[in-house]
Design a protein around this nucleic acid. Sequence first.
DNA 1: GCCAACGTTGGC
DNA 2: GCCAACGTTGGC
Length: 139
Amino acid sequence: MKHWLIKTEPKAYSFEQLVADGRTSWDGVRNFEARNHLRAMAVGDLCLVYHSNVGKAVVGIARVTRAAYPDPTAPDEDWSSVEVAPLRTLAQPVPLAQLKAAPELAGLTMLRRSRLSVTSVSTVDYQRILHLGRRSLGA
DNA sequence: GCCAACGTTGGC
DNA sequence: GCCAACGTTGGC
């Protein structure tokens, strides 16, 4: 199983909206590298969902429920979508500043390639980020 | 194939 | 609102 980080502007489509919807077509990606990552996703892969611009934090986890298919928002063009469903909301969001401040996450692709909307995440980094998202005692 | 111009993303 | 990063486009 692979792990990914997918970005969304919450004003356009938030994780809360995904929870409300139950599942969604993750479409609108218009970058070749990001598209290729979508195509590499398999059903069951887990995605950290990051809110860009507003929030600037990892807020939840989604599960891939349908592998890549043609992006319905770009008929006759060579883009792809996957379908995802919410798995759970993090007890506390993990802000970008916290990701940047964690020395063990220095290799995170998302930090080095800040404009790439779909990036892969190593299993160990995925677990580190989940750990940061646990509610801390006394918080 | 190079490179300047331009548009978009996204943090600050 | 600004600006850096960077992907895309198009002229040559």
